[in-house]
Amino acid sequence: MFEARLVQGSLLKKVQEALKDIVQEASWDCTSSGLSLQAMDGSHVSLVQLTLRADGFEKYRCDRNLAMGINMGSMSKILKCAGNDDVITLKAEDTSDRLELMFESPKGEKISNYEMKLMDLDCEQLGIPDQEYSCSIKMPSHEFARICRDLSQIGECVVITCTKDGVQFSAKGDMGSGTVKMSQNLGAEKEDDQVTIEMTEPVQLTFAIKYLNMFTKATSLSGSVCLSMSNDVPLVVEYKVEDMGHIKYFLAPKIED
């Protein structure tokens, strides 16, 4: 038996919105420690990894490890039926091919039950190495979203350059070029407004902006975003999911042919 009850159901709605454009089908892995998911986009350029720890749920029970094959489009449709203030409960029997979703309004006067068919998925899981990065940049998530959106009008690629002075995002295309520089700003009143840069070695990498724009669908989950980079390895874009977990997006760089 698997059962997970989340009082702040809007978090699950936001997580789903942050995943659905990148991943069409994914295996949601349920263990006693929590829910996790790892999936690549269809072109195998990016990978997303979600962790929601068991202790973040008001009630969590998982008697046996379960891999639920989920069509993300269907999951989105059903989660859209939940109100933003609803409590969401997920339930599945160990051998069932269905996931039950229950949405309770805050005062309990409305209870909706949905059932979603699960799929048999043969997902390839990749081992993500735990590594140190040359640069870690924390910045307001809405600023990162804005930069990605703005520069995607200029070109298809963004060059991210991180030095001790700051981080620079540049794009160029047929009509011209654009550059946005963010400098460290430790004086901001709110922690989410701070820009912090930790660097052991300067880094310059080039990425396809369309993937970064998809990652920014997670913006509403967290006030800040962390970018981790080292030369010649995938970029990590991490959003916290309150104090219960995270979504990490990995994006392979463009390399010289």
């Binding site: 690549m40 350029v45 990749l126 190495p129 995938p234 760089p253 463009k254 390399i255 010289e256 042919d257």
Partner: peptide, 14 residues
């Protein structure tokens, strides 16, 4: 000219 790398080139299969 830059070429898009695959994420699978960086992470090993489990």
């Amino acid at each position: 000219k830059n070429k898009q790398a695959s994420i699978m080139g960086f992470f090993s299969k489990k």
